[in-house]
């Protein structure tokens, strides 16, 4: 499994995928819809799919002494690796905003989504959607990525829109509570996001493997 990930990191990826991990730092921005950072991280991964197609990576991988489903596994491993790197970055910034930066006026007067565990849960949901909608959709053909990416854009912005709207609905302000107020509820959202991320990734991996098995290269 490690050699599959090494192949992705060394041969099949675009440098933009690594660079775009830094969009996890968008979590620092006050007065900005910070969930968009997760979308940019996915945009970076998308660049690697483009690069890999130009480099005949899928055919090369399918000719290696691995099962066909391992070709799919290697792409999922790469996506999960980048997503988790960006998630750790966002989580670290979230922690800073909730602790040492908690008294900063810009964060106190923030009209948009605050960096808190609920935000991290929604970030994971966006990553899960990328794996389920884009990566799985790509393996229908192992070639076409425009339609799956457009579908992902719609899903990502729907989640971002919902995340930014939810806490303005009376009674749901707790989702966006500042600092450690309502931490229990927000951690529940984070755990739900983690569970959904895992389920979406695993189920879509199975589906993508089955789709890839059926196509002729």
């Amino acid at each position: 499994m490690l050699n599959l990930l090494k192949k992705e990191l060394k041969l099949s990826s675009s440098v933009l995928s690594y660079f775009f991990i830094l969009f996890g730092l968008i979590t620092f921005f006050p007065g900005y819809p910070i969930l968009v950072g997760a979308f940019f991280v996915c945009l970076g991964i998308f660049q690697s799919f483009q690069y890999a197609r130009e480099a005949n990576d899928i055919l090369y991988s399918a000719l290696l002494p691995v099962k066909k489903s391992d070709v799919v596994k290697s792409k999922y491993l790469f996506c999960v690796f980048i997503e988790l790197c960006a998630f750790i970055l966002s989580a670290a910034v979230t922690l800073l905003r909730m602790t040492v930066l908690s008294s900063a006026p810009a964060y106190r007067a923030n009209a948009l989504m605050n960096a808190n565990p609920a935000f991290l849960g929604l970030t994971l949901l966006i990553y899960g959607c990328f794996n389920a909608v884009f990566v799985c959709g790509f393996f229908k053909t192992a070639y076409g990525f425009a339609k799956p990416f457009i579908r992902f854009i719609v899903a990502a912005f729907a989640i971002t829109g919902a995340g930014e709207t939810l806490h303005h609905i009376p009674g749901l302000e707790a989702f966006n509570a500042f600092g450690f107020d309502n931490a229990g509820l927000q951690i529940a959202v984070l755990i739900s996001g983690a569970v959904l991320y895992t389920v979406l990734t695993l189920l879509s991996f199975r589906r993508a493997s089955s789709l890839f098995e059926k196509i002729d290269l």
Binding site: N3, K6, K7, K10, L11, S12, E54, A55, N56, D57, L59, Y60, L64, P65, V66
Partner: peptide, 20 residues
Amino acid sequence: VNYYPKKKIRDIVSVTKTFY
């Protein structure tokens, strides 16, 4: 077929050999 046209041959080989 032209694989990984912009990668050094040394890098392509160093990854490929780990599979065999």
